[in-house]
């Protein structure tokens, strides 16, 4: 499906995101596997709670990191994450 600022992403049914102090990173866990997320991927994915839409996620990130113009990056990442089944979209 086409991803817009109104899309609501949620971490995929068979994935779990958690902070791992030993790796100093967020990781995505799934059957017999793990993806270590870089900082921006981790910050985006942990906000994919099935309630916030992309616009809200972008706004939250821009406030938290005192940044602007993150929308294109977030949209691109959500598209990649959906291909990997890391997120489900509604």
């Amino acid at each position: 499906m086409a991803i817009t600022t109104a899309t609501v992403p949620k971490v995929g049914r068979n994935f779990r995101i958690q902070w791992e102090p030993a790796q100093d990173a967020y990781v995505l866990l799934y059957p017999e596997g793990m993806v270590k997320l870089n900082q921006s991927a981790g910050e985006i994915l942990k906000r994919c709670d099935g309630a916030a839409d992309v616009a809200a996620i972008v706004a939250d990130l821009e406030t938290t990191f005192n940044a602007q113009g993150l929308e294109a990056d977030v949209l691109a990442f959500i598209e990649l994450a959906e291909q990997q089944k890391w997120v489900d979209l509604t």
Partner: peptide, 8 residues
């Protein structure tokens, strides 16, 4: 405690 996270 050492950082194991996947457990089979």
């Amino acid at each position: 405690e050492l950082g194991s996270v996947q457990c089979g």
